[in-house]
Write a protein that binds this DNA or RNA. Structure first.
Lengths: 219, 219
DNA sequence: ATTTAACCTGACCAAGTGGTCAAATATTTT
DNA sequence: AAAATATTTGACCACTTGGTCAGGTTAAAT
């Protein structure tokens, strides 16, 4: 990411005000996501974010005014990406396919954008003070449709019943996000080695198979 | 000094130096766990901890010297309790029983001591800087024995193979700890209502059944 | 009873903290 | 070209931070 910042800054010199703002906002958002992921809202400082973004601190305040404002923007952008990964549940009719693609997409997100997942986790752990609206309206709505999909599959005897469909959904969330949020722990328990791309693909398949079997679908 | 004298002194409002230290350390540790759970190491302040403990800030420093020191003591105490819950995996031979009791114990811990789980999660998310030793030696050791138990069950055809036994173990961790770490999210998605004890018992059973089925055991 | 050792805490400090601002610079508009 | 607008940033400020410490109180040992 550092290289990206350097590249963008190097290119500057003859660009429109509009694109300057656009670029800098992206740079700052990326830096903020990284820092917030590590230390949460309270534990992060605007100075840290500025250093990662390689900009003066005043610049961060110029574009986002307050730390809280910047934080909210980060949360919002994560939520958007999150919802994109959630589409499979509504686009596939067969549970085997829907679950396979959804779990796969969530695993991919954990791999490619772990910081976002961590910011989200941090926010929830600290009581979700800045996300209650997102959770109780937008996420809740998606969860409801998702739960009714699962219930339909149960009624059609396509999957085993698990009592409350939420339990199954939460298992998917927890298991997939674990590979982002707890990645440091996983590395340490893997003798200090990060999973290679192909090892991660394998992991993904294993997770998908476990999830499918948990509701009685033979992979 | 006889117990009678101690009792009398206690009645008069006097406490022995030893019990004063013991009591205050416990009070401070409990307060610290609560605060660290919410804001992590960097985001928590000794003043907040002092306020929750209802003691002057200097008192916190008197007993634990530094914030980091107090934080390490909290982590250590959580790890100890965690390992206690982990015993079933070594005391039951049959996977069905071992898994049932282990998952049950972890769910119970999420219910009764959610702050500890959150402190742990926070620490891992922020890169586990204070826990590398605990993770790479003590936790690693337990994981290794656990993995070999699972592998044995696979060889004896008592459970389905999931490729890497770690995948299964991590699924258990993630799913059970989710009920502690993400409790605020669960409450919001449950229309603002916390689960009652009996509802939680039900959830616990559902989780156990999902986990068992994921490796091909009919509950 | 007196000394010793542990406990207690308000006052204090140096090092940050989020945020402001004015002045300098760069781009756009007229 | 000049006025208007947007970006950049060092200097600055009121406030909070973790941590210290002196001087007091309380319990234990002599």
């Amino acid at each position: 990411m550092g290289d990206q910042i350097v590249a963008v800054k190097a290119k500057r010199g003859q660009r429109s005000k509009e694109s300057i703002r656009e670029d800098n906002e992206l740079i700052i958002l990326a830096a903020a996501e990284k820092v917030f992921a590590k230390h949460g809202l309270k534990g992060s400082t605007t100075k840290q974010i500025a250093d990662v973004a390689k900009l003066p601190k005043s610049n961060i305040h110029y574009y986002f005014h307050t730390k809280l404002n910047l934080y909210r923007r980060v949360l919002e952008s994560i939520f958007v990406e999150w919802m994109k990964a959630a589409e499979p549940f509504n686009t596939y009719d067969e549970p085997k396919e829907a679950i396979r693609f959804y779990v796969g997409a969530k695993m991919d997100l954990s791999r490619t954008r772990p910081f976002g997942s961590k910011v989200w986790a941090n926010e929830i752990i600290s009581g979700a003070p800045e996300m209650e609206e997102i959770l109780s309206s937008r996420l809740k709505k998606w969860v409801d449709t998702c739960v009714s999909s699962i219930n339909t599959w149960v009624e059609l005897k396509k999957i085993n019943s698990m009592g409350d469909a939420h339990t199954f959904l939460y298992m998917i969330w927890a298991t997939t996000q674990h590979y982002a949020d707890f990645d440091y722990q996983l590395i340490i328990l893997n003798n200090g080695k990060k999973l290679t791309d192909s090892e991660f693909e394998e992991k993904k398949q294993q997770v998908i198979d476990l999830v499918l079997r948990s509701v009685g679908i033979e992979p």
